[in-house]
């Protein structure tokens, strides 16, 4: 009867541990939303931040986060697309491929602060980009490349090899087959991967504090000339993001209402990331349904 008693105890312990985790998670998310949401107002979202006084908003930080996200996706999607295609379609099982795979694994496991410091060294100092959106989005691209490459490779591999053969047997080049047949069919998976990685980038801070910088100078949202110093589109200006802002107000300790700003900003971050997560699922499903024709 010992075995049965142990069985009961073990099941009890497991369920106990699971409950503790669920409790931690719910209170974590509850804490962020409950302490944060009441302070998320229209004014908070759309006024500029203040360093030494209370009552600052996050409009520039929010915009910077989005702008960095868009720029970094813009440069990382094509590269990881090419790399994913290479691994899925052209790579032969030999030492070269395994070296390539290892280096992608290494890149994906590098701490983001190391990526950030490398970006600082090479982009900010060597290439003299200074603390800028451009340097920040390239650093984010470094983080994003291995994740995106892998998810694109997986999505391509999940397309049946029969589709490849169909394309080739019609005298199409491999490239046309990939572009016209394989990629469209892998699209739901690719999109889901991109959106999930976008969520990750949106909350990234360690790679940005020494690349995009920690200041959000005033800019004009009506100046659409990206080469103008004050334009919101200027990629050469330093750009503190929302995540960096949370870190900054907490470590500097000079903003009087740092707590309110951080909790409200955290709530905003979490909600945006939730939207990305659900969006990924929704869009993936939609595209899949559209492709398979049961509209």
């Amino acid at each position: 009867m010992n075995a049965r008693r142990n069985n009961k105890i073990a099941t009890g312990v497991i369920i106990g541990l699971v409950s503790i985790v669920v409790l931690i998670l719910l209170s974590l998310i509850g804490y962020i939303l409950i302490t944060g949401l009441p302070d998320v107002s229209f004014k908070f979202l759309f006024t500029e931040s203040k360093a030494f006084a209370a009552g600052g908003g996050i409009v520039n930080q929010l915009f910077n986060s989005l702008y960095l996200l868009v720029l970094s996706l813009l440069i990382s999607i094509p590269i990881s697309m090419g790399a994913g295609i290479y691994l899925a379609e052209y790579a032969k099982p030999n030492w070269l491929t395994s070296t390539i795979r290892t280096s992608i694994e290494v890149l994906s496991s590098l701490p983001s602060i190391v990526i950030g410091l490398f970006g600082y060294l090479v982009l900010v100092i060597k290439f003299q980009l200074d603390f800028s959106i451009l340097a920040g989005s390239i650093a984010l691209m470094f983080l994003n490349l291995p994740i995106l490459t892998r998810s694109i490779e997986d999505s391509i591999n999940s397309v049946s090899p029969l589709q490849r053969q169909a394309g080739l047997s019609l005298g199409l080049s491999r490239w046309e087959t990939i572009k016209g047949v394989i990629i469209p069919e892998a699209l739901p998976g690719i999109l889901t991967g991109i959106i999930l990685s976008a969520g990750r980038i949106f909350g990234e801070a360690a790679a940005l504090i020494y690349t995009a910088g920690q200041s959000a100078p005033t800019m004009s949202y009506t100046n659409f000339n990206p080469f103008s110093e004050t334009s919101f589109l200027n990629p050469m200006r330093p750009a503190e993001t929302l995540a960096v802002h949370i870190w900054k107000v907490n470590t500097d300790g000079i903003t009087p209402d740092a707590d309110i700003i951080s909790s409200a900003s955290s709530a905003v971050l979490i909600i945006v990331i939730l939207i990305f997560n659900f969006g990924a699922r929704y869009i993936g499903n939609r595209v899949y349904k559209k492709l398979t024709g049961d509209k």
Partner: peptide
Amino acid sequence: KATKQDRFGRRISVLCIGLIVILVASII
């Protein structure tokens, strides 16, 4: 045209993967 496309496609994808490998090497 197909022969050319194939060469083009292979070059592009080799270039992309090469960039990543070079990136890792230069980080290290």
